[in-house]
Design a protein around this nucleic acid. Structure first.
Length: 319
RNA sequence: GGCGUCGUAGCCAAGUGGUAAGGCAUGGGUCUGCAAAACCUUGAUUCACCAGUUCAAAUCUGGUCGACGCCU
């Protein structure tokens, strides 16, 4: 009997500006790996500075997948991501290299690692729009009562939250597949992870340390030409996904003469900090993460050593 | 030195006699096809300080301190 070995995958997660990119690249250099990005914004072309996309120079010749390949006018989604990422990982494995998953989009990371089934043909954009306008007219409560007719469990769960978006998706899922999202989620719970992973999470003992890095990086972005990039991006066609990027819309009031540059930059910093906080909240509940405090292991080199030690200790890459 | 205005949470701020709105920031959380999204939740035994009036004061009176403006 042959045991099929699960694919080994090194994962690096953490909030924005915590140094994921550098650590991943160093890991790849050391272990002969390639990076698979798990970032919902770095996928877009021409959005370079705001998304902190690694430059050619920073990549040091390490191959990066799922970066810089989509026009900002195109939509993208988790479902598509899981498919694309699996393909990239397979490709890396077939070359006998180590895949290093790196990214801050928690939903993408978890969906890939837990092999969440996004069920083909479970989305109906037209229906979604219709439901959206119904929500605007009659309110979430009405949609909740619709949902309660066939899926009382999720209606109950969502009623506390009153999150229109999720209510719509729950209805949409049922209408397109015939199964409720509750059943779907239950089915997913028993699934075995597809990959054998070692997960590193970058964080800090002191939250302020991360916030300071965020603030500093925004200033650096401005210095490096964010204003010009923002003008271009704001003038081009954006999809629902790409238009959500942090770094452009916050500068709009300045371009339109409605606020000072300082005010907009402050806003940009605040929203980036909020984002970092949400990422931390998301990853914190994952018990499999090996946390590295970046206010303790301050340089990428220190972090790399720590990570390599752990990989060896756990004999992760043996066999 | 005189006159005036003001002093409420980290910040902005409502409240003019009946027991401290709201917003922002901060902290915590949710998360299965837009996720850099969307959403939930979180704070003042106290209103610069002291004394007084009153059953009752952030609110009225007097004083002290501080800020700003004007005048000399």
């Amino acid at each position: 009997m042959t045991i099929k070995l699960k694919t080994k995958l090194i994962v690096v997660v953490g909030p924005t500006a915590s140094g994921k990119t550098s650590l991943s690249i160093e890991l790849c250099k050391k272990l002969d790996g390639e990076v698979v990005s798990a970032d919902s914004m770095q996928i877009y072309k021409s959005m370079e500075i705001a998304t902190a996309k690694p430059t050619m120079e920073e990549m040091c010749g390490v191959k990066h997948h799922l970066i810089d390949f989509l026009d900002p006018a195109q939509k993208y989604s988790v479902g598509q991501y899981v498919l694309d990422a699996q393909k990239a990982i397979d490709e890396i494995i077939s070359k006998n290299k180590i895949p290093v998953l790196c990214g801050g989009t928690g939903l993408y990371v978890d969906s890939l690692l837990n092999d969440i089934d996004f069920v083909e043909n479970s989305s109906d954009l037209k229906l979604r729009e219709e439901l959206n306008s119904i929500a605007n007219e009659k309110g979430v409560d009405y949609l909740l009562s619709v949902l309660a007719e066939f899926d009382p469990d999720s209606a109950k769960r969502l009623s506390e939250e009153r999150n229109t978006k999720r209510v719509i998706r729950a209805i949409e899922f049922y209408k397109t597949t015939g199964t409720t999202i509750t059943e779907q989620n239950k089915a997913g719970e028993n699934k075995k992870p597809k990959y054998d992973t070692i997960i590193f999470g970058l964080t800090a003992k002191d939250r302020q340390y991360i916030y300071d890095r965020v603030n500093l990086r925004v200033d650096l972005m401005i210095k490096n030409g964010l204003l010009e990039e923002a003008r271009n991006v704001l003038n081009s066609e954006l999809s629902e996904t790409s238009s959500k990027a942090i770094g452009y819309k916050q500068l709009k009031p300045y371009f339109e003469g409605e606020a000072s540059l300082d005010e907009c930059v402050e806003r940009l910093k605040t929203e980036t900090r909020h984002y970092a906080k949400r990422q931390l909240t998301w990853f914190r509940r994952n018990e499999n993460i090996n946390w590295i405090n970046i206010d303790e292991y301050k340089t990428t080199k220190d972090q790399l050593e720590y990570a390599l030690d752990l990989i060896q200790q756990q004999r992760f890459l043996d066999g």
